[in-house]
Design a protein around this nucleic acid. Structure first.
Length: 639
RNA sequence: GCUCACAUAGCUCAGAUGGUAGAGCACUUCCUUGGUAAGGAAGAGGUCAUCGGUUCGAAUCCGAUUGUGAGCACCA
């Protein structure tokens, strides 16, 4: 007797060992059909393996996340099988499931191109049609290595050779295709169904290391049913519609061009948005006790040699040579400049903490392949600040900076923020003792912050450990923005000191922090987060005054003058076009509100307000409308 | 930087097999004065990313360069 306990607590008894298939079939035929795998006492396993003793069993279908992951993983195997059938000379490597789908990395002389995808996808459908059994086999490790080597599968052999000797190796066979895999897998290829699609090809380094050879990767998406697949494709289209590069053009915010790769040409509207962010931040920082400064964009290379930038960051730096043969570096960071300001005069411990902030434009020569709209550029503006303080003040100051970051993200409409903690990288300045100290201090601050955090080992800056603040946008993507870094190295490298209470000279601690991070990137994130529908206070153009007939032109001018006098950003649309034409155009460019004026409004001193995305018109007196909009357009700091 | 793809009018895109370019929208002018997501007509606009090669002839074929896209690696 084998007693199987199901998740609802019910128990079913069987005469002897049973498989997941038997259990599912015992419950219902439809479940037997939908069953992909089972969980026996909480552990996932193949559905056709026997269960010999009493156990808790859960049937896994594609409705659960786990089931969907299995399905996607199987899609990767079917992809590999299809490729091996079509291109026998290709070597297989690895193919996991990922968010929304799967990929498989192949090694071959000539990489796949997009044209190959259709052929491969068609073969995958054939393999699903064949409904081949997928069965687990247990092999001896050395035999498995020998087998894959004999098949010319060097990468697979290498992976298996990495498994400890003596450990058993699970292989899965489907048709003529056999692959190393931890499993579990679906019982047959037919279970994959039709809801999958190959999406793109890309290069990817073997084991993720750019020193290794590049493989050819095929990405695909797979879902439980065709409706989910269709929904996913629709979501991709929606994401494309809110792409900041597209909206930036449509809304006339900025452009990029070939002569200045990774550098932004801000148009008047985009620059207005940018300045709104700066205005907000400037006030916020002053409230928090910061002093704003400005430091040179180019400084002699020798300074960057002292700070360690030339050595540790040199590959990312722009250099300029002047007619007098001096070599200057364009600043990639603001810290050395701020240290120069701190160093002027003699600082006392009473001057600490000293907060120096700058909207500093920095240039970094980023790898060309990394550039992406506003999100990844070579010239960007940081809302950067350096807090010079004593060791005792580190915890407090880090907590304060973190609080500030959370408040700011909140004002900009982001409520989910997570923190990542990064410790010493391989490329670094300073002794291990100093790093021990800096890491411990930052960790102490992190614990005092009471925030959700995760570790990011080895990812710190070259001068100190850091915290990164990652926010999640409206469509669930994570963006790294703010950062707080504890630096016990830079002041010493650049000779910055203060006089302590015991009248001895000491090196201050330097906390580097940025809140938006890069203003350019933050701007891009805002565009995508709001899909161009900015809250009124951020919207570069707040109101368009549009006339119905030219009888209303004079009145429209009056309206716009009054809007301007009230500090609202508006434009006048007196063109000889129908009102529906004007409404459409200003809706497409995401203007938050249109004040429509015709003969009636001119006579009554009113405006007909049409909000972006709304259908209703709200006719109000001009004074009332202006008061309401002034109120709504207030900076969050004034509310 | 690496792999693949792409680069034609301001934007979105057509332009088998080589014979020096087209559409829609936008723009300009005219008609229309129209009440909430595209009224009508006419006109103007391109050294087909750049440089080289093959050819009688290149937007088209080949190579290089630059830029862009999707990934990888890197990262604010």
């Amino acid at each position: 007797m084998v007693n199987i306990t199901l998740p609802d607590g019910s128990v079913r008894s069987f005469d002897g060992p049973v498989t997941g298939t038997d259990v599912a079939g015992d419950i219902s035929r439809s479940l037997a059909k939908a069953a992909l795998a089972i969980k026996v006492n909480g552990a996932l396993q193949d559905i056709y393996l026997p269960i010999g003793e009493d156990a808790g069993v859960e049937i896994i279908t594609a409705k659960s996340t786990e089931g969907l992951d299995l399905l996607r993983h199987d899609a990767a195997h079917v992809l590999a099988e299809a490729v091996k059938e079509l291109f026998p000379n290709t070597q297989v490597t690895i193919g996991p499931n990922i968010e929304n789908g799967f990929y498989y990395d192949f090694a071959r002389e000539t990489p796949f191109t997009t044209e190959d995808l259709a052929v491969i996808e068609a073969r995958m459908h054939e393999i699903v049609q064949r409904d081949e059994d997928i069965r687990r086999e247990v092999w001896d490790r050395d035999e498995a290595v020998a087998f894959f080597e004999s098949q010319g599968e060097a990468y697979k052999a290498e992976i298996i050779a990495g498994i400890p000797t003596g450990e058993e190796v699970g292989l899965y066979r489907q048709g003529d295709f056999i692959d190393l895999c931890r499993g579990p897998h679906l019982p047959s290829t037919g279970k994959l169904g039709k809801a999958f699609k190959l999406m793109s090809v890309a290069g990817a380094y073997w084991r993720g290391d750019s020193n290794n050879e590049m493989l050819t990767r095929i990405y695909g998406t797979a879902w439980a049913n065709e409706k989910d697949l269709k929904d996913y494709l629709t979501r991709l289209e929606e994401a494309e519609r809110r792409d900041h590069r597209r909206l930036g053009r449509e809304m006339d915010l900025f452009h990029l061009q070939e002569e200045a790769p990774g550098a932004v040409f801000w148009h008047p509207k985009g620059w207005t948005l940018f300045q709104c962010m700066i205005d907000y931040m400037r006030r916020k920082q002053i409230q928090a006790g910061y002093q704003e400064v400005s430091t040179p964009e180019i400084m002699d290379k020798s300074l960057w040699e002292k700070s360690g930038h030339a050595e540790k960051f040199g590959e990312n730096m722009y250099l300029t040579q002047t007619p007098d043969d001096r070599v200057y570096a364009v600043k990639p960071m603001n810290c050395p400049g701020h240290v120069q300001i701190f160093k002027q005069g003699i600082k006392s411990y009473r001057d600490l903490p000293c907060y120096l902030a700058e909207f500093g434009k920095v240039h970094r020569y980023e790898p060309s392949g990394a550039l992406h709209g506003l999100m990844r550029v070579r010239a960007f503006t940081q809302d950067d600040a350096h807090i010079f303080c004593t060791e005792e003040q580190i915890t407090d100051e880090c907590v304060k900076a973190s609080t500030l970051i959370h408040q700011i993200y909140n004002d900009f409409g982001f409520d989910r923020v997570v923190v990542k903690y990064s410790d010493r990288p391989e490329q670094r300045v300073g002794s291990d003792e100093v790093w021990d100290h800096a890491e411990a201090a930052l960790m102490k601050a992190l614990n005092a912050m009471q925030v959700e955090w995760s570790a990011n080992p080895g990812e710190g800056a070259f001068y100190g450990p850091k915290l990164e603040f990652v926010l999640r946008d409206a469509i669930g993507r994570d963006w790294q923005c703010g950062t707080v870094q504890v630096d016990l190295n830079m002041p010493e490298l650049l000779g910055a000191t203060y006089v302590d209470a015991d009248s001895r000279r000491k090196y201050p601690v330097m906390i580097h922090r940025a809140l938006f991070g890069s203003l350019e990137r933050f701007c891009g994130i805002l565009i995508e987060h709001h899909a161009g529908h900015f809250p009124l206070w951020l919207s570069p153009l707040q109101i368009v005054v549009a006339t119905i007939t030219d009888d209303a032109d004079d009145y429209a001018r009056t309206v716009q003058e009054q809007l301007a006098a009230a500090g609202l950003r508006s434009e006048l649309d007196l063109r000889n076009e129908k009102i529906s034409y004007k409404v459409r155009e200003h809706s497409v460019t995401k203007v938050p509100a249109i004040f429509v004026v015709g003969k009636r409004e001119a006579e009554e001193g009113t405006v007909a307000i049409r909000r972006l995305g709304g259908k209703a018109q709200d006719v109000r007196s001009l004074d009332e409308a202006i008061a309401a909009f002034v109120e709504e357009a207030q900076n969050p700091l004034d509310r």
